[in-house]
């Protein structure tokens, strides 16, 4: 079982308390009606599906209830960091540096 650090509870807890919520930092267009079909498709469905460091959302469902963001390596399942919703996307080079 994965152990995930909730940035609100400031505790590292079993995965069973959390639910996965897809890729992070996907911003909804301000005026959906101005979007072309292709742009709207892009927003709704097209994801990066990276092999490696993935910015993704999680929710501490059976805990504080909050959504937050994480960077997880999709190859090793290792969490590089977790951070509060609304916080800027952390720079990957500083994250991978600290893992060395």
């Amino acid at each position: 079982m994965l152990l995930i650090r909730c940035p609100y509870c400031e505790e590292t807890l079993p995965e069973a308390e959390f639910t996965y919520a897809g890729e992070a930092h996907i911003i909804r267009p301000e005026r959906p009606s101005d979007q072309t079909d292709e742009q709207w498709e892009e927003y709704l469905f097209i994801r990066t599906n990276v092999k490696g460091a993935h910015y993704e959302r999680w929710r501490h469902m059976h805990g504080c209830g909050r959504f937050f963001n994480a960077v997880r390596d999709t190859v090793s399942d290792r969490f590089l960091t977790t951070y509060k919703a609304g916080a800027p996307r952390p720079d990957l080079s500083t994250l991978t540096e600290s893992q060395k």
């Binding site: 069973a16 308390e17 469902m61 059976h62 805990g63 504080c64 209830g65």
Partner: peptide, 10 residues
């Protein structure tokens, strides 16, 4: 105390 999980139930 905490809100947590017990055999699938919050």
């Amino acid at each position: 105390g905490r809100r947590t999980l017990f055999d699938g139930a919050t």
